[in-house]
Design a protein around this nucleic acid. Structure first.
Lengths: 134, 134
DNA sequence: GTGCTTTCTATAGTCGCTATAGGTTCAAGC
DNA sequence: GCTTGAACCTATAGCGACTATAGAAAGCAC
């Protein structure tokens, strides 16, 4: 009937790892595929599309739970564009918060490293920043 | 002889959580303290200083392994300032790499959200970015 | 001695995989 | 038909840095 894909082919086409695909199935993110007589997974093109979606979501940093929510929204005929955008907005806010955190860390490390004269260990500015309050 | 601190006091003074302090002991980052007759941990001011150090390292995003390395360097009389700075430089590079990743994600999310007209679900730019290659 | 808070240990869960062990199936070549 | 080697199967444990839970014991004020 339908052409199917082995888990290896699916991995190659999506850029996911085989173990990761099985993991997605285990946590309910990817539906269980049919099996061959020998018990090997036989995926359909629909699985390929869904895994592509998951992969893109992951590359945007969405956690698996959010991707699961997005998949539900896409299947829900009553869901609106705003519902989808709300998830993306929320994620964007988290991404920006992380960037802000990391930039503060970057600035502190830069300052300490710039101040350091690389002379004696006792005067190391990096050590200083860690030992005393700053 | 020496005034000691309970784990709760140590937590309050350092801003760590009690369970986290016990975890640090478990993984060998904080030395095992003496115990009271009843088995409660009795910390010294040296523990307080070390935990403060760990806390500052964590707030700079250093992984526990790096903090362990830094602690060893501080105790090693032969270690130089450059040894310490090398660890910080390496960490700074990792922080910058993460920032770059997150900024790319931020830009993509911003673009999708800006393009979205919030009209029909089928035309949602965010969904579009996830469903089709981009 | 009576409560109440703090502390104790041990275990399991979080997230998103990754690694390992030990076995089975499949596809191609002969 | 048979062999070989790759791909596949399940189950389990590990990563980092905690967090949560349960049930018991200690400590301290009144």
């Amino acid at each position: 009937m339908q052409e199917t894909l082995s888990i290896g082919e699916l991995a190659r086409r999506t850029g996911c790892q085989v173990v990761t695909i099985r993991y997605y199935e285990q946590v309910g993110l990817l539906p269980e595929p049919a099996r061959t007589a020998g018990g090997h997974r036989a995926y359909t093109p629909a699985h390929l599309r869904q895994l592509d979606f998951i992969k893109r979501g992951r590359s945007l940093g969405f956690p698996l739970a959010a991707i699961s929510g997005l998949l539900n929204l896409l299947e829900d005929r009553d869901a609106t564009c705003s519902d989808i955008d709300a998830l993306a907005e929320q994620h964007l806010a988290e991404v920006r918060a992380k960037i802000a955190d990391l930039r503060a860390i970057e600035a502190q490390l830069e300052t300490s490293l710039a101040q350091c004269r690389h002379e004696t260990r006792a005067q190391c500015a990096v050590a200083e920043a860690l030992v005393s309050a700053g």
